[in-house]
């Protein structure tokens, strides 16, 4: 009697649980079938007292099995409803992250700033001080102190903007050498990046305002061999690869001997191409051993000290690195150009 009632209850309860359409419907079933008070299971348990003692153990066990089966079915079904609800919520939260984030995107440094900073860092790591000097200079610092006396033909090599009061816009960053020698004294290692000016018509490859980086080392023993070492290290740092360089004679009054340093064309590897005008070499920086007159004018005894100096065209480097074909962009202030360096 009891046995068949239990089997019947189990079958009907499991069927109802399986058929429940929602968590709320399932809750109704739970109360009706397995609730504490007045549920079908509670009602049946009242009949346990009438079970003969000999059957009590068996029926009791059967009762518990039935109860457990119904409760696990209820729990499982409930968990399934919870999962489904969560999934439904998450499904509604689909988000398109291909839209741009709010706020302003970072700006870009000027390409010359980028190159300049890299080279400054490179030289600082090799023990060089970074110095600055003014854009407006004295004739003495720009020319005389660099072994270019008045009427020296080298003054013609640098078309100069003259200012009232006998001053001028510096034609190179070399005057900072003079300031550096006076300020630091020997031994010294310094570089000086900055804006320089030449009285030249502006076209896609010429500017009256451009950027240079001057460098100088003064020590007891400074040779051409040291100079080549530093220049090679510098260029490998800039181009981030092995480079081949050559020195050839070049005339700059503030160095003796003076050199032009060429780098083997990185585009064609020296075979010849339009960039290197088929020569395989690209002229990159003038350099040399510091002229004894320049050391003397900087307050340094040339019998005791030697030095090398070099100049690097930052404008030219930036144009090479970024393949900029029109120099005028660099001072054009056009955001469509500048944004590319972010």
């Amino acid at each position: 009697m009891m046995e068949s009632q239990l089997a019947e209850l189990k079958a009907s309860a499991l069927a109802r649980i399986a058929a429940a359409a929602s968590a709320a419907e399932l809750e109704v079933i739970r109360v009706e079938v397995a609730g504490r008070k007045g549920s079908q299971l509670t009602e049946l348990s009242k009949g346990m007292g009438k079970v003969p003692p000999v059957d009590k153990g068996r029926i009791g066990k059967l009762f518990n099995e039935t109860k457990t089966a119904i409760e696990s079915a209820l729990d499982a079904r409930q968990a399934a409803f919870a999962d489904a609800a969560l999934n439904a919520r998450l499904d509604a939260e689909w988000f398109d992250l291909t839209v741009p984030p709010p706020g302003v995107r970072p700006g870009a440094l000027h390409p010359i700033t980028i190159i300049q900073k890299e080279i400054e860092d490179l030289f600082t790591s090799m023990g060089f001080t970074v110095l600055s000097g003014p854009e407006v200079e004295t004739e003495f610092n720009n020319f005389d102190a660099l072994n270019i006396p008045p009427d020296h033909p080298a003054r013609d090599m640098q078309d100069t903007f003259w200012l009232e009061g006998g001053h001028l816009l510096r034609t190179h960053t070399s005057p900072v050498q003079v300031r550096g020698m006076q300020r630091l004294g020997p031994p010294l290692r310094m570089i000086a990046p900055g804006r320089v000016f030449r009285n030249e018509e502006v076209d896609p490859s010429h500017e009256h305002t451009f950027y240079q980086l001057e460098g100088m080392m003064v020590d007891r023993e400074v040779s051409v061999a040291y100079l080549i070492y530093y220049m090679k290290t510098l260029l490998q740092g800039i181009f981030k690869r092995e480079v081949t360089v050559r020195l050839r004679p070049g005339y700059f009054p503030f160095v003796e001997p003076g050199f032009e340093l060429d780098i083997q064309c990185l585009l064609c590897g020296g075979k010849g191409c339009p960039v290197c005008k088929q020569s395989g070499w690209v002229e990159l920086l003038p350099c040399g051993l510091v002229h004894p007159n320049v050391l003397r004018l900087g307050g340094i005894d040339p019998e005791q000290w030697n030095g090398f100096a070099f100049g690097l065209g930052l404008t030219r480097l930036a144009m090479m690195r970024y393949a900029i074909d029109d120099i005028r962009h660099l001072q054009g202030g056009d955001l469509r150009f500048l944004r590319q360096f972010a």
Partner: peptide
């Protein structure tokens, strides 16, 4: 964005 303008 950084710009460079002439001194003139």
């Amino acid at each position: 964005h950084e710009v460079y303008n002439y001194s003139f």
